[in-house]
Design a binder for these strands. Structure first.
Lengths: 166, 166
DNA sequence: CTAGCATATGGAGAAGCTCTCCGGATAGCG
DNA sequence: CGCTATCCGGAGAGCTTCTCCATATGCTAG
């Protein structure tokens, strides 16, 4: 990749991160391009869809999330470990304004690696806690709840996470 | 209200019901107006926002839902009753393509009556089943899950509802 | 039965969105 | 330094939501 292209790509990702954090689902690709100081065409060449853009952002975040999850495997209390983990997943989902993460949980193949990593940790933690729940289902529910908690004023994320049987 | 206005209002609601069922969140108010055979202005005068339109539709549906819930209060197995009820709520949410219902669960004051009715039944059923969970939280989670199950291929709604502790 | 008015209509249009296209600029190699 | 493959920007097509107001029509009072 040419150096100017790389530079633009980085700036677009930074702008997108700001835009998604600020406007959530109301994010506008137009505005992202403006923030990044590039034309719309440039944005769309680098990221053919809004989803591709999210994939790039989330891929970064998931690395940190995965490290946290791996560390939790050594937690003395397995039941507490899975609870901590799901709270971390929910927080990650919230950081990207929920909707986003939910749509991508089982989304495109581009995110397959990310999802596999998160599911792997979830499975291990569920197993250690003696749970029979499917990791995929649990993750979907957690993401859905994270998303809902932002859209329903007065809804406490922790309290709703308590309602998930694991 | 003038009779022609009433007629248009009815036709708009019918068109909206069809459009939402067909296109889910991708529903277009423009298309609803076309389907109903009215101008965009007419649609917006009757329903200032997409939400107002949904309120009208959902208000109808909730009446039937509420009747079902009330009947469940006589169910011999309280634990089964609450499970049946939540499945019915999820189904109702799915009928309106999830997103919709989730956004409205604690939404505008226009839907307060509906919400109160549903919450009342939920509280009674939870109480009878000896649960300490907050009805609001349970409903939010159920709606979120219903929504998520449509957006994540392979996610089974019943299996995810099993994960909710009540 | 009709006349007049309050009420309702519809579609053009403003503003914003996503996404495409391509003439022109430029990075970086030889 | 010059040439070319690569990359850029923004105009524009075709959507969208939502507003405005000249026109049409239901309803009522006479």
């Amino acid at each position: 990749m040419r150096s100017d292209a790389q530079q633009n790509r980085d700036r677009i990702i930074a702008a997108a991160r700001a835009e998604f954090t600020e406007h959530g689902d109301g994010a506008s690709l137009n505005r992202i391009a403006q923030r990044a100081g590039v034309g719309a065409g440039t944005l769309y060449r680098h990221f053919p869809s809004a989803q591709a853009l999210l994939v790039a952002i989330i891929t970064d975040d998931v690395a940190a999330l995965h490290a946290h999850g791996t560390a939790l495997l050594d937690h003395p209390d397995p039941a507490q470990a899975i609870r901590n983990w799901l709270a971390a997943v929910a927080l990650h989902a919230t950081a990207m304004r929920g909707l986003v993460a939910t749509e991508l949980v089982r989304g495109g193949p581009a995110l397959a690696d990310c999802h596999r990593a998160v599911r792997g940790v979830t499975e291990a933690l569920l197993d250690r806690a003696g749970s029979a729940a499917r990791a995929d289902d649990v993750l979907t529910v957690v993401n859905a709840v994270a998303w809902a908690s932002e859209h329903t004023p007065g809804a406490g994320l922790p309290r709703m996470l308590e309602l998930i049987r694991v």
